[in-house]
Design a protein around this nucleic acid. Sequence first.
DNA 1: GCAACCCACTTATATAGACATGTGTTATCT
DNA 2: AGATAACACATGTCTATATAAGTGGGTTGC
Lengths: 248, 248
Amino acid sequence: MSSVASSDGGNLGTKSPAYLRIAAVLADRVTSGAYPAGSRLPSGSRLCDEFDVSPMTLRRAINLLESQGLLSGVKGKGTYARSPELGDSRFKLDSLAGDWLDESAEIRLLAASMAKADEKVAAMLRVGIGDRVVYLRRLVSYQEDPVMYHREYITYDPRRPLVESQLQLTSLHAFLESGTARRFPRGELTLTAVSLDSESAQALMQPEGALALRLEHVFQERDRTPVSWGWFLMRAELFRLRAHLGPE
Amino acid sequence: MSSVASSDGGNLGTKSPAYLRIAAVLADRVTSGAYPAGSRLPSGSRLCDEFDVSPMTLRRAINLLESQGLLSGVKGKGTYARSPELGDSRFKLDSLAGDWLDESAEIRLLAASMAKADEKVAAMLRVGIGDRVVYLRRLVSYQEDPVMYHREYITYDPRRPLVESQLQLTSLHAFLESGTARRFPRGELTLTAVSLDSESAQALMQPEGALALRLEHVFQERDRTPVSWGWFLMRAELFRLRAHLGPE
DNA sequence: GCAACCCACTTATATAGACATGTGTTATCT
DNA sequence: AGATAACACATGTCTATATAAGTGGGTTGC
């Protein structure tokens, strides 16, 4: 009763498409408790009547809210309200130096060599132990200031001389945009908190044991065979992750 | 030319809806370079002809890929292929102890008191400096094992005795599902790497200075006025974040 | 009692067209 | 030449209807 007052935090009032308007209204009903979490919403046809739109338009609104985790439909039964959990949050990596890292960041190649895959490398790249792999170490600097230290193992394929093209990458943008090779990026990322070993600490000009974020990556071919395994050690105070909970 | 071979990593071959089939084909063309990043796709009507579907079905496929960052449409001009960047990745918080934290996690209230807002608290909760706020400290244990230490400041509103209901929360599930109050969760999350101060270290039974992830949260009312500010200190070795790059 | 069947209602997918709106080119008028 | 109008074509929204497919209740027939 009483103070519902439409709210309308963003200005979806007048000129936005119907499916967004409806999605906003439904989201509001879920978050306000008008449709309590776990309860069944009115059926599609009833909502069509209420909002005076065609089924497809309502469907679009519902699909949108389903993708946001606010609703969940069960065919033949109904559409149910859901309360998103903390674990649903998706974090976005955020550089304190502006919009992730822009073009002014520079990559310097510290070392490039051939190495024999040890047990760990062999497992990650799915090659045999002792097989030859390329081992790279890079330093990413932001404004003359080292911010990330990068180690990477790449499968060695004499037919595809990917090393040369990669060694010349000095723009971070080009590097990040293209994954590790010139191909389309596909891979898995894992992020943890670590403290710097002496080698990385020295490269980053930090005291040994300093805090860092470790962004481990496995880049893959289109058929998902791994091509590259490595990790960035990022000075912890320069990076954070952000997410928000709830609608918009 | 030659070895395109359809691939079809997931089995979208036979029985999946048309819009998914088409989305998969288009995603494949973008990632394989058949539609190079930045280039314009054939127009909607042409693609409708090719796939022999109606405009709405094609639209659904395109909307899906737009939401995945693989395409981007410009009204009146065309639809363009995009190469997702590393910065686009969305990380999901991942507990090493299974599926985020399940019901067996327990919350123990260590301390609850009234406090006067200092400068920082006042700014985060948008109250005046010196205003009364509730100060809570909690310990989350997983299997008799302390894993997260939680500090939280809550705006004090005598009309709404939210404290009592919160103090009784012992199931982590109930806690995380409901944000901090009984209401629908809305808020902002920030995650950084820190090292434990002596108080938190003692609570977590870790050495002082041990690695931790700091999950800071601001929970808000539906009108976005802040209700609660606080942070979890999570033992670093027990949590990580994961993301993947590229389609599915 | 119980299985089989039917029917009403649900979500979900797809269609074929209409319309709105933005962009860029081409032709026309001054 | 330069502004303007007309046009073709693009994306994007919406409708009204059709159909598929899953759920659950009720009836019928044995």
